[in-house]
Design a protein around this nucleic acid. Structure first.
Lengths: 212, 212
DNA sequence: TAGATTGTTAATCGATTAACAATC
DNA sequence: TAGATTGTTAATCGATTAACAATC
C-alpha cells in the first residue's frame, strides 16, 4: 500500500464513512463488495470510490471487487486506527465532559488519559472516572505518557494557552472545539470543530428553504 | 440583497467565519474594511472574499471597501440569525447536556426550549434549568411552540425515531450528531456533525506527518 | 472462455485565483 | 482629479464523473 505525498482532504473526509459501512458489511458476514454496491450504501459514485481507493494504490481485483476485511483493515491503518491512540482533554466544561464520556476506546482504540482545567471549581471533580486535574497535572501526564491528541474544550480565551501547554508536552495533533485560530508549529495539525458554524449553516439552509 | 437560487456549500461554510471577524472589528470600532484586510484576518484571498459577497449581490463600494456594520448585519440576515430561532434537543446523554448548556441564546438568539429522552433514567433529571421530558413531552412542545431545529443527540439506534417525531412535529431542520443516515422528507435539511469522523481525519493527518 | 469489475485515462464540472475595467 | 478598491470576467486549478482497456 503506497502512501502518496498528499491526499486531498476531500478524499480523507470520505474514508471514515467507507469504514463505517464496511464494518456493517463485515458484521453481516459479507466477503466482498463492489464499488457499485458501496456506492449504493454510501451515496458516492462508484467512479469516485475507485478513484479514492486508488489514491492508496488500489485494494481491489478486477472482476471480483474488494475484499471487505482487507479494505476495512487498510482504511483502518490509513486512518491511524490500527494502534492505540492517546488523548487528553483540556477544559472540563460540559463539552469536555461529554468528550471524556464518549466510548472512544471501545470503538476505535482511542484512550482518554485525563481531563484538565484551570478553574478551581472544576479541579478535583470526578468526571467519568477521572479526577479533573490542574495545568501542572496536565504537564505531568504529558511527560509520563506520550499523547497523540490534545483536545481543547476550553473557552475561546483559554484556547491558545492550553494549546501551548499541549504542544510543549509533545502532542502530535490538536482537536480544537473553540473558535480561536490557534498558533501552531509546523507539523502539528489542528482539526477544528466549530459547532456554532455548523448550526449557522443549518439555519441558512432552513432560511433558504423558506424564501425559495 | 438578491438571494440566488443556489449558493455553493463552500461559500456558506465561510460566512460564519466572516461574521466572527466582522464582530471583532465592530467591537474594535472599525467602520470599514477592505477585502484585503478581511483576507489577512480570515486567511481567505481577497478575490475569494469579493466573489463570495457577490453571490448575494455585493455589499461594497469601489474605492471604499465594505461598511463593517452593514456587512455584519447582512451576513447575520443571510444566516437566518436576525430573528429568534428555537431548538429542542433529543437525547439527554453527555452530548445532549453539553448542547443544552451552550450559551446559544446569548450569542446568536437561538433559544433551547427543552431536552428530551426515552430512557426512564434520564427523564425527570434536571439539566441546565430544564427537566428532561419524555417523547410525549417532546410532541407536546412541538405542538405548543414551533421549532426551527431539532437536535439529535441520541445513540445511533434511536436517531431515526427521534427524527420522525421531530419532523412530524414540524421542525424545519435537523442537527444530527449521530452516525445514522437519516431519512428525511424533501425540504427538511439535515446538518450532520460526525465527531468520530473528525477525530479520524485528525489521526490520519498525525499518522501522515509521521511517515512523510 | 465469458462476464464482471477494477484501475486508469480522458472529459466535465465547479471552485478558486488573477486581472482589470468600472466607479466611488 | 488621483487613488483605492470593488464588481466581474477570464484563466487556472482541482475534484468529480465518464469511459474503457486491462485482467481476474
Amino acid at each position: 500500500m503506497k502512501r502518496p505525498l498528499t491526499i486531498s482532504s476531500a478524499v480523507i473526509k470520505r474514508l471514515p464513512r467507507y469504514r463505517r459501512f464496511l464494518r456493517d458489511l463485515l458484521r453481516d458476514g459479507a466477503d466482498r463488495v463492489s464499488s457499485a454496491r458501496l456506492g449504493e450504501l454510501t451515496g458516492y459514485t462508484p467512479s469516485q470510490i475507485r478513484q479514492d481507493f486508488n489514491n492508496f494504490g488500489g485494494f481491489g481485483q478486477q472482476g471480483y471487487g474488494y475484499n471487505v476485511r482487507d479494505l476495512y483493515d487498510s482504511i483502518t491503518a490509513i486512518l491511524g486506527l490500527d494502534a492505540e491512540r492517546h488523548m487528553v482533554i483540556v477544559g472540563a466544561g460540559n463539552l469536555g465532559r461529554a468528550l471524556a464520556h464518549f466510548p472512544w476506546e471501545q470503538r476505535d482504540g482511542v484512550v482518554v488519559d485525563g481531563i484538565f482545567d484551570n478553574s478551581p471549581d472544576a479541579i478535583g471533580q470526578n468526571i467519568g472516572g477521572f479526577t479533573v486535574g490542574d495545568i501542572d497535572g496536565l504537564r505531568a501526564i504529558l511527560k509520563k505518557l506520550p499523547q497523540d491528541v490534545g483536545v481543547i474544550a476550553t473557552n475561546r480565551q483559554g484556547a491558545q494557552e492550553a494549546c501551548a501547554v499541549l504542544v510543549e508536552g509533545g502532542v502530535k495533533g490538536i482537536w480544537n472545539f473553540t473558535t480561536a485560530d490557534l498558533l501552531l508549529p509546523d507539523g502539528v495539525p489542528a482539526q477544528n470543530v466549530h459547532l456554532n458554524d455548523s448550526l449557522h449553516e443549518l439555519l441558512y439552509r432552513i432560511a433558504g428553504g423558506e424564501q425559495a
